[in-house]
Each structure stands twice: as C-alpha cells, then as structure tokens.
C-alpha cells in the first residue's frame, strides 16, 4: 500500500523533557490512523513536526514517499488543537485565505462548506460561531483542495455529545471518500469507534502500533501446564474456539474467544482426561494497560 507518512527516529526535547523519543511509524493510504496517548505523551508534538510548525531535534519524516516534493504540505489538511481563524472575518473570507495558501480556486470553498453543513452561515463572522461550528469550519478549511490526508488533533475536545457525534460522523464520511485520516486523541473510546489503526504513545515513546482490533481488543490469554504437554497441546488444538496457541517456558499460552472462560476450558480438559498442573488467566489487554497509564497521569 502507498505510504502517506513515514517517520524515522523523530526526536524532540523541551529542556530536560523528552517530548518525542526516537519515534518511527508508517501510515498507509486509506487508514484511519489513531495516535492514542494521555496528555503530554507527545501526540501534538509529533504532528507538529510532521506539519512543519515544530522543528525536530533529529530524525526525519517524509510525506507521500516524496512524490509531491515541496508541495506535499498542500496535500495535507490539518487541525492542531483548537480551530484557528481570523475572528473578524466571515467563514467565507477565512476560507479564501486558506484556498490562496493551498493554491486552490475559490470554487472549492462552496463544496467544503456544504460538506460540513456551514454553507448557510458562510457570511457570518467566525467569532459568532459555536465551538462545534468552529470545529466544522476547521475541517472545511482542512478539506480545501481535496487533501490526500487529514490530520485532526483532539477534534472532539470540549464539544457536547451532539457535536462529538457530528464530528465523528464527518470523519468517517471523509474517510469513506478515500482520505487518509490521522487522528490524535486521549480518548480510548474515540479511537476504538473511529480508527482502523492505532499507535499508542506515552512520554514520547511508542508503546504499540497496529490494527485497532488487534491492539485494543480484550485478549483473554490462558496459561496452562500439564504433566503431558504433547497430549495437552493436541487436545487443545481440537477446540475450534481457541484463537491461538503458543508455547512459552514449558507452558501453553492460549488465546480464548470472549465467550470462553478458564472454567470451561478446565472442565473440557477434565472430560478428555487431562488434568492441569497450572492454570492462570492472563488478561493481555492494551486497553487496561492504557487506562492504567491514564490513571497514573490523573493522580
């Protein structure tokens, strides 16, 4: 798949604090790529570097495998933190400036205003907009010139439930049109609902990266041991609701589908005449792990 953004050993330090540490990641075309992490984990700094507003200490990044050269940035729509516009200008005038910056025709403005359902308010000054409308206008601005990638940093921050639903629906609608989305959020729930891929950051370090359903899924891992490991392994492999089997330290690690429990497995094995000498339920869930990080941050 075509690469949208690739970073190599990206670093940024503020004083003695490492905001981003040797960060490598690759985002491919068509993904809704979530960057998940608590506040201060380096999400905004990372995006700021990729967008040119923050200068990296070291490391590099490349957009679109370099195919647009210097113009690559006009192929990326971005909203970092809060929506920023000239408060004294109307939505329309603000978007004219954006269109000029992106070397686009004014004719694109009507299209994006309609896309975010702000066309009727296009002549109102930006300062009269509600937060949800401001956020939608920011998305409209980011969509001018049909970008190949759209970057959103905490897009639902401070919005009411209706505003949150609107933005999420808008993101999914935009992604459906083939735009690659990069979404930074501290909300696990948001990333799970919206994203296809996720990278988890903490204190500037990459903790995990991959598909959302693989990484954020609840994984019930059962650790079992028996006198006769070969028998055990053969028996276990006949159960078709076991997702995976792995041998580790003379134990079997088996991943259970959600409806299974340690109890059921134990009973089944007993029926087959296998007694376990060790049975331990390990919940290997990044979700729990992530929530723990968040809890520590909040203390």
């Amino acid at each position: 798949m075509e690469i949208i953004l690739q970073t190599k050993k990206l670093n940024k330090q503020y004083g003695s604090i490492k905001a981003v540490n040797d960060l490598d990641f690759t985002i491919r075309k068509g993904e809704i790529f979530g960057i998940l992490g608590p506040n201060g984990s380096g999400k905004t700094t990372t995006l700021g570097m990729a967008l040119g507003v923050t200068l990296p200490q070291s490391g590099s990044f490349e957009w679109f495998e370099g195919k647009y050269g210097k113009n690559s940035r006009t192929k990326v729509g971005a909203i970092l933190e809060s929506p920023i516009f000239y408060p004294y200008m109307s939505a329309l005038d603000n978007l004219k400036i954006v269109a000029k910056i992106k070397k686009q025709n004014y004719s694109d403005i009507d299209r994006v205003l309609k896309h975010v359902e702000l066309y009727d308010r296009r002549k109102s000054p930006f300062k009269t907009f509600s937060l949800g409308m401001k956020q939608r206008l920011a998305i409209a601005a980011a969509l001018i010139g049909n970008p190949e990638a759209l970057i959103l940093d905490e897009p639902t921050n401070g919005l009411d439930p209706q505003g949150i639903a609107d933005i999420r629906e808008l993101v999914l609608r935009t992604a459906a049109e083939g735009v690659t989305i990069i979404l930074a959020s501290h909300l696990l729930d948001e990333v799970q609902k919206v994203c296809s891929h996720v990278m988890i950051l903490n204190k500037g370090n990459r903790l995990a990266i991959g598909k959302v359903d693989e990484i954020l899924q609840e994984k019930n891992i059962l650790e079992i041991k028996s006198e006769n490991m070969t028998d055990l392994k053969n028996t276990i492999s006949t159960f078709d609701d076991i997702r995976s089997i792995k041998e580790e330290d003379e134990k079997l690690l088996i991943e259970l589908s959600p409806e299974l429990s340690a109890d059921i497995i134990n009973k089944r094995l007993m029926k087959k005449g296998i007694s376990l000498s060790h049975l331990f339920m390990k919940e290997k869930s990044l979700e729990k792990f992530f929530l723990e990080i968040l809890k520590k941050e909040n203390v």
Binding site: L51, G52, V53, K70, R73, T74, V76, A78, I79, L80, I84, F85, Y86, P87, V98, I101, K102, A141
Partner: peptide, 19 residues
C-alpha cells in the same frame, strides 16, 4: 501582532504556507 495573537501564523504553516 494579530497573527501571533490569533495564532494564525501557526495555522498558516499548518495550511501549507512555508516559513
């Protein structure tokens, strides 16, 4: 100074204007 107060100097770069 408007550009700094409104933070539009940053947004312009985000929108694709070079430094």
């Amino acid at each position: 100074t408007n550009e700094f107060n409104y933070k539009t100097v940053k947004q312009q770069i985000l929108n694709g204007l070079s430094r």
